Simulated assay, not measured.
Amino acid sequence: MFVVSLNYKVPLAEIDRLAPAHVEWLKVCYVEGIFVASGPKNPRTGGVIIARGPRDVLDARLAADPFAKAGAADYDVTEFTARMTAAGLDAFNEV
Rank of each mutant, 00 (worst) to 15 (best):
K41G: 12
V10M: 02
A73N: 05
A13L: 12
D59W: 12
R17C: 02
V31R: 13
Y75V: 02
V77W: 06
R17A: 09
E94P: 03
P54A: 15
R55S: 08
A82R: 06
F35D: 00
R44T: 13
F92R: 04
G33K: 10
M1Y: 07
C29Q: 11
L58C: 13
R17T: 08
M84W: 09
A51I: 03
R83Y: 09
G46S: 10
N7Q: 13
A13G: 11
V36P: 01
E32F: 06
A13P: 03
A37H: 14
G71S: 07
G88M: 12
K69E: 08
D16P: 05
A13M: 11
E79L: 06
C29H: 03
V95Q: 03
D59T: 11
D65C: 11
G53I: 08
G53K: 06
R55G: 06
D74F: 06
M84N: 07
A72D: 05
C29K: 02
V48Y: 05
I34F: 01
A37E: 14
T45F: 09
E24M: 15
Y75R: 09
I49D: 00
F35Y: 12
V36F: 05
A51G: 01
D56A: 14
P20Y: 10
M1D: 04
T81D: 08
D56S: 14
K9L: 14
D65R: 02
T85R: 01
G47Q: 01
A70I: 07
A70T: 09
R61M: 11
D90Q: 14
E94Q: 14
G33L: 12
V10G: 00
P11E: 12
A21R: 07
L12R: 14
A68Q: 05
V36T: 02
D76W: 06
D90E: 15
L6A: 04
I34R: 01
V3I: 14
A70F: 01
P43W: 15
G47F: 00
V10K: 00
A73R: 01
P66M: 10
R55T: 10
L12W: 10
D56I: 13
G33W: 09
A70C: 05
P66K: 13
M1P: 04
